[in-house]
Design a binder for these strands. Structure first.
Lengths: 338, 338
DNA sequence: CCCGGTGATTTAGACGATTCAAATCGACCT
DNA sequence: AGGTCGATTTGAATCGTCTAAATCACCGGG
C-alpha cells in the first residue's frame, strides 16, 4: 500500500500519465471533464506529489537552506520569518539549520544542503571566508551572506555593525560614562569585531574613556549572566559604569546578574544591548538596544537569492547594507528612570 | 559547468557508473587501484551526491521532519538536539519546522514534508487529533507524537503533565498559598490542559484554595509579562500570592512584570514555571520549575521512529511516558530567600 | 470526400543513482 | 589446453515526474 504515483492515478482515471502531469502543472489545457475525473482519482487514492522525482527531473530544487548561528535568538527567528514569507510567495520551502556558532555543525549542514541540491543558501557563517563555503559557491550553489558583508563575488545583506558600535558608544560617552565594558564573542566573528571596532573608534576619539573587553564563546543569556557576575564582583571604584553587549540575550543575562548582585540599572550600571528583540523592551528594566531590521534582512536576502537564481548568468552580486538605530530605554537613561 | 554526475566521474576515471556507485556504497568490493582512481576523479571534479536521485531510486528518504511549536523556546531546541544526535548517528538529517502554535503553518509544513516523502515526522501537534495528521498517517508516513500522549495507533513520547501540575500545586499549597493563578494557553492544547487539570485536582483535594485561570494565545515571555502586569494591578488583598505558569518563557516574562511593578518574589508572589530551561536557573530570581527531560524526549522519539521504520509491519506502537521533577529555587521558596 | 486546423491526449525519452544478474579477467589446477 | 573459482566490473532496468513532439478525433471549408 505504498503511496500511489502519478501512474496509478492515470490508470484509475483512465488517462495517460502525461495528462495527469498536465493536470498538475497546466490544468488549463486539460478538458474540464478529464480534469474532474483526474481530480477524483487523486482524492480517492490520496495521491501526493513526489518532490524528489520532480526535483530530479527539473534539475533544480524548490528548497532554500537557511543556516543561522542560534535559532533560540529571536533576531534569527525574525530573520527566518522574513525569508519564509517571501519563500512562501514563490512556492519554495525554507530549511532551517542551526549551526550553534559551531563550524563543524555548520559544515555538516552545508554538506547536507549541497547534497540536496538546494536552490540556494542563506547563511550567517561563522567565518565568511571559510574555504568550504568558497568551494560550495564555486561548485555552483548560490549563496547569500546574511548579517555579514561579502567582500568577494557574493551577495550579502547586512547592517552597518561599526555604526551600531559607534551609536552605542557615543550614547554612553555622552551620558558621562568613563569606564565601559564591551562584551561579546567570539571576537573573530565579523559582526562582533565590527561592533567592537565601532565603539573602540569613538572611545579613542573621545580620549578619556577606559574601554575593557570581555569575550564569550557563545552569545546567550547564560554567558551574559556569568560575565555580569564577574563584573559585579569588582570593587565599585574600578568597575565599569556601563556595558555594551553584542546581543540582547547576553544583555538580558547581564541585566539579571546586576539585579541579583543588587546593582541598580542604570544608576550603577548602564546597559545597551544589540538586536532589539521583542523581549528587550519587556525586560524588568526595559533595555536600550541597537535595532537591526531582522525581518527585512531575511526578506532582502531571499530576494537577492531569487534574483540570482532567476537571472543566472547576467547576475551582478550586490551587497546591501542597512543602517541600525539606537533605541534608548531605561537601562541606559538616567532621565527616564524614575 | 553544472554539478558533475556519477557518469562524468565514471568517464574521467575510465570505469563504469556501476563501479563508481559501488565505490560510494560498498567500497570494500572495489579493487584498491580502482578505488584510488575513482577517488581522484571525484576530488578533481568536485562531485557531490545527488540526494534527490538516491531518494527516488531507494524509495525512501533519509530526512526526518521535526515540527515544534516554538523554536525560540529552549525546551524545543534541547529536544531537537536530542533528536539530531541520534539522527546523526543513523546518517539521517533532521528538518526543523516551526509551527509557531499556528495550525495553518503546521499544516503547511506537514504538506511539504509529505511531498518530500520524509522517512518520518516527529511532531508536537497543535491538536493531536487533527484529521490532517490522521490522514497523513493513513497514507503511510510514520509519525511520532512528541510531548503529547497518543491515544490511538501512534507512538508517542511524553511527560506526565498532570503529575507536573500536581507537583507544582502541592508545593505551593504546602507553602501556605491560598490564592493561586494558573497561566498558560491555549487551554485546548493537551499539555496545557493536563497541567491545569493536575493543579486543579490537588487544589480541589485541599479544599480551601482559590485557583484562577489566565489564558494566553502563545506562551512567550511577552505574553507572560502582559498577564503579570494585569495581576500586579490587582489590589493586594485579592491578588494571588502565587502563580504557576505553563512554561518558563511565560514565567520569565511574568517575573519581570513583578519586578517592574515593585512586587517582591517570592514574598509577594511565588512563581513556579515549567520546562526548567537553562535560563530559568539564571534568572534575576532563580526560577522554580517543573523539569522535563527535553533532550531525552527528543532522543527517545527518534528512537521510536527508527524502530518503526526498520521493523515496518511487525511494529507495535508504544507510548513512552516520563516523569517530571519539581526543581525548587528561590522564586517559590521563602526559606531560601534572604 | 479530402485537407488543414484546432484542441486534447498520448508517447517516449530524460534526470542521477542504485542494484543485480551477467560478463570479464586472472590465476590456478589438472 | 581446458576448466573452475573468485574477484571485479559492466550494462541495463528502475524509481516518479516532466516536457517536447507526435498522435488522434473532430469540424468546417473547399
Amino acid at each position: 500500500m505504498a503511496t500511489p504515483s502519478i501512474k496509478e492515478v492515470a490508470r484509475q482515471a483512465g488517462v495517460s500519465v502525461g495528462t495527469v502531469s498536465n493536470f498538475l502543472n497546466r490544468p488549463s489545457i486539460v478538458a474540464p471533464a478529464t480534469r474532474k475525473r483526474v481530480q477524483e482519482s487523486i482524492d480517492a487514492l490520496g495521491f501526493v506529489r513526489n518532490e524528489a522525482a520532480r526535483h530530479l527531473r527539473a534539475g533544480k530544487s524548490r528548497t532554500v537552506g537557511l543556516v543561522v548561528l542560534d535559532v533560540t535568538n529571536p533576531f534569527f527567528t525574525d530573520l527566518a520569518e522574513g525569508a519564509e514569507a517571501l519563500a512562501y510567495a514563490h512556492d519554495t520551502v525554507v530549511m532551517l539549520c542551526n549551526s550553534k556558532t559551531d563550524p563543524v555543525r555548520e559544515g555538516h549542514h552545508l554538506d547536507q544542503l549541497e547534497q540536496q541540491r538546494v536552490m540556494g543558501i542563506l547563511i550567517t557563517p561563522f567565518d565568511s571566508r571559510d574555504p568550504r563555503l568558497t568551494a560550495l559557491v564555486d561548485r555552483g550553489t548560490p549563496v547569500v551572506l546574511v548579517d555579514r558583508t561579502a567582500d568577494r563575488g557574493l551577495c550579502s545583506v547586512s547592517v552597518d555593525d561599526q555604526l551600531g558600535g559607534r551609536l552605542a558608544g557615543n550614547h554612553l560617552i555622552e551620558a558621562g560614562h568613563r569606564r565601559i565594558a564591551f562584551i561579546g564573542g567570539p571576537f573573530t566573528m565579523q559582526q562582533v569585531a565590527d561592533r567592537k571596532e565601532g565603539i573602540t573608534a569613538v572611545v579613542e576619539e573621545s580620549g578619556e574613556v577606559d574601554l575593557r573587553f570581555y569575550e564569550v564563546d557563545v552569545m546567550g543569556a547564560v554567558q551574559g549572566r556569568a560575565v555580569g557576575e564577574r563584573i559585579a564582583a569588582l570593587p565599585a571604584r574600578s568597575r565599569p559604569t556601563a556595558a555594551f553587549l553584542a546581543n540582547d540575550l547576553l544583555a538580558l543575562g547581564f541585566l539579571q546578574a546586576m539585579a541579583a548582585a543588587g546593582l541598580r540599572v542604570p544608576r550603577d550600571m548602564a546597559i545597551v544591548g544589540y538586536d532589539d528583540i521583542d523581549f528587550a523592551g519587556a525586560a524588568a528594566v526595559p533595555l536600550s538596544s541597537v535595532r537591526q531590521p531582522a525581518e527585512l534582512l531575511g526578506r532582502t536576502a531571499m530576494e537577492l537569492l531569487q534574483e540570482e537564481v532567476e537571472s543566472a548568468e547576467r547576475h551582478r552580486h550586490r551587497q546591501v547594507i542597512f543602517q541600525p538605530d539606537l533605541i534608548v530605554r531605561d537601562s541606559s537613561d538616567h532621565q527616564r528612570r524614575r
